[in-house]
Amino acid sequence: MFYAYLRGLVVFLLWIINGNVHYHHRERIIDKDDNYILVAPHRTWWDPVYMAFAARPKQFIFMAKKELFNNRIFGWWIKMCGAFPIDRDNPGQEAIKYPVNMLKKSQRSLIMFPSGSRHSTDVKGGVAIIAKMAKVKIMPSVYVGPRSFKGLISRERIDMNFGNPIDVSDIKRMNDQGIEEVSSRIQKEFQRLDEEVAPFHTDQKPSVLWFFIRIPLAVVALVLVILTLIFSYIASFVWDPDKHRK
């Protein structure tokens, strides 16, 4: 329940800040009753929110670097939303074992950025191995829009485009050759999705009246954020998401 609430709150905040998002080909998204790995090139801090919102009501788990869990409130938030910590320098077997187990035994899918970071475009092999071991498909998507907060708040257009599911069941072994084949399929689909959405992506911005409309909405959002922060701080001492998850 908290996952759905926090997802809605963050999207509401992004709508107030930007309010110019467009979703394309959501009908391609795999049925909500089936688990899958939702992947995209990691281009901003906020693209996973748009990904998760577009694929609702499906809920997700996702990897997050361990440093993000140090803050009491933010760390509790992302734990409640299904995040699990990863040591980027030494990821270990848990980086594979935990998402595979969740994809097999829970109702949550996985959001993953195959490139690893916002500064890389190379598709890594982790997503291929997890998909093969969990026997799930890979659902590609792309975010096209502002990559700075200045662009976001000035209401530059955002486009989220979803592609065709990628089945890896035909690949017998996830050795170097198998991983390279999966990476190639993902990268080609990313490129196709970028090209597909390019004609829709323009620099035209909505009416300036929006800047006046969002002032009272911002006040409402601020109240909700403050109440959520207070609740989260108190709840972090009472409810341990890790114990509940186990």
Score class of each variant (00 low, 15 high):
residue 9 L to D: 08
residue 9 L to R: 01
residue 13 L to P: 03
residue 13 L to Y: 00
residue 15 W to H: 09
residue 16 I to T: 10
residue 17 I to G: 11
residue 20 N to T: 07
residue 21 V to L: 10
residue 24 H to E: 15
residue 25 H to A: 13
residue 27 E to I: 06
residue 31 D to R: 13
residue 31 D to E: 13
residue 32 K to M: 07
residue 32 K to A: 15
residue 34 D to L: 11
residue 35 N to V: 03
residue 40 A to T: 04
residue 43 R to W: 03
residue 45 W to E: 09
residue 51 M to H: 01
residue 51 M to W: 02
residue 52 A to T: 08
residue 53 F to C: 04
residue 62 F to K: 04
residue 66 K to Y: 03
residue 70 N to I: 00
residue 70 N to Y: 04
residue 72 R to Y: 04
residue 75 G to D: 13
residue 75 G to P: 11
residue 76 W to S: 04
residue 78 I to G: 01
residue 79 K to R: 15
residue 82 G to K: 08
residue 86 I to M: 00
residue 86 I to F: 05
residue 91 P to W: 07
residue 92 G to V: 06
residue 92 G to R: 06
residue 93 Q to F: 07
residue 96 I to E: 01
residue 98 Y to V: 14
residue 103 L to M: 05
residue 103 L to Q: 00
residue 103 L to D: 03
residue 104 K to W: 01
residue 109 S to G: 12
residue 112 M to P: 02
residue 113 F to K: 00
residue 117 S to L: 01
residue 117 S to K: 07
residue 120 S to C: 12
residue 124 K to E: 12
residue 125 G to I: 12
residue 126 G to F: 07
residue 129 I to E: 05
residue 129 I to Q: 04
residue 136 V to Q: 04
residue 138 I to D: 00
residue 142 V to T: 11
residue 144 V to T: 10
residue 147 R to V: 13
residue 150 K to W: 10
residue 151 G to F: 02
residue 155 R to A: 06
residue 158 I to R: 05
residue 158 I to T: 07
residue 160 M to T: 05
residue 165 P to A: 10
residue 165 P to T: 07
residue 166 I to K: 02
residue 167 D to L: 00
residue 168 V to W: 01
residue 170 D to E: 12
residue 170 D to S: 15
residue 175 N to V: 10
residue 175 N to I: 06
residue 177 Q to V: 12
residue 179 I to M: 08
residue 180 E to C: 00
residue 180 E to P: 00
residue 183 S to Q: 12
residue 187 Q to M: 14
residue 191 Q to A: 15
residue 191 Q to I: 15
residue 192 R to T: 09
residue 197 V to W: 04
residue 199 P to E: 13
residue 203 D to S: 12
residue 203 D to N: 13
residue 203 D to Y: 05
residue 205 K to I: 13
residue 209 L to Y: 15
residue 211 F to M: 01
residue 213 I to F: 14
residue 216 P to M: 02
residue 218 A to E: 14
residue 222 L to F: 12
residue 223 V to R: 02
residue 224 L to P: 10
residue 225 V to E: 06
residue 228 T to E: 04
residue 233 Y to E: 10
residue 233 Y to M: 02
residue 236 S to V: 06
residue 239 W to I: 15
residue 240 D to Y: 08
residue 242 D to K: 14
residue 243 K to H: 11
